[in-house]
Simulated assay, not measured.
Amino acid sequence: MHTYIPKGVCSRQIDVELDGDTIQSVQFTGGCDGNLKAIAKLVQGQKVDDIVAMMEGHTCGRRSTSCADQMAQALREAQAQQ
C-alpha cells in the first residue's frame, strides 16, 4: 500500500494499492465522500497508464488541480516505487 498526501484539494490522504501496472484499490480520506468512493470503484482493475491519461490535469473549480488529478499523481508515485 502506498500513501500519498495530496496538495491543493479537500482530500487529506490517498492510499493506493497496485499489482504491477493494475490498480487493485484506491481509498481517499476526506474530500467529497460519494464522488471519491465512485471514482475508487471505477478505477479498480484498470491500468495505471489508462487512468492517469484520463484524470491527469483535471481541475476543481478555480483550483489548478483536483482529487482526480492528485490520484493520478499518487498512482504515478506508487508505480515508481514498485
Score class of each variant (00 low, 15 high):
S64W: 00
G61M: 09
G31R: 01
Q82S: 06
G30K: 10
Y4C: 05
G30Y: 03
S64L: 02
G31C: 02
G31A: 01
L75N: 00
Q46F: 00
G61S: 07
K47G: 01
N35D: 12
T22R: 15
G61Y: 03
A68P: 06
Y4Q: 02
T3A: 07
G30D: 11
G30S: 05
Q24N: 06
G20A: 10
G20Y: 08
M1N: 06
C60V: 03
M55A: 15
Q27V: 13
D49M: 10
A80M: 00
V52R: 10
G34F: 00
I14Y: 12
V16C: 05
V26F: 05
I23Q: 01
D19R: 14
V48W: 10
H58Y: 12
L75G: 00
P6S: 09
F28N: 09
Y4D: 06
C32L: 13
Q79H: 10
T22C: 03
G20N: 11
A40L: 06
L36D: 13
T3Y: 02
L18M: 07
M55V: 15
D21L: 11
V16A: 07
C60W: 02
D50E: 15
T65Q: 05
V43T: 14
I39T: 14
G45V: 04
L18Y: 06
S64V: 01
G30M: 04
A40H: 05
K37P: 01
Q44C: 04
R76P: 04
G34E: 02
T22V: 15
R62Q: 07
A53S: 15
S11E: 13
A40M: 02
Q82V: 03
D50Q: 14
M55W: 13
Q46H: 12
G20F: 09
I23H: 01
V9M: 12
L18S: 02
N35G: 08
D15K: 14
K7M: 00
R62P: 00
I5L: 10
A80G: 01
K37D: 12
R76V: 10
L75Q: 01
P6K: 08
S11K: 12
K47F: 11
Q70G: 06
A80Q: 04
K41E: 11
I39H: 08
G8D: 14
Q46G: 00
A80Y: 00
F28Y: 14
K47M: 11
T59S: 12
G34L: 00
Q24I: 13
A53P: 01
D33R: 14
A40E: 03
H2W: 10
H2K: 09
I51E: 08
S11C: 14
Y4P: 07
R12S: 12
Q27W: 09
E77V: 05
H2V: 03
D69G: 09
V52E: 09
T29E: 14
A72K: 03
K47L: 12
S64Y: 00
I14S: 08
L42K: 10
M1I: 05
Q82G: 15
G20W: 04
G30V: 06
Q27I: 10
Q24S: 03
M1L: 08
A68K: 13
F28K: 13
I14V: 15
V9E: 13
E56H: 14
D19H: 10
A38L: 07
A53T: 15
V16R: 01
T59C: 06
I39D: 03
I5D: 10
T3S: 05
C60L: 02
F28G: 04
K37Y: 04
E17R: 09
P6G: 06
G34M: 01
K7T: 13
E56K: 15
C67V: 07
A68L: 11
R12N: 11
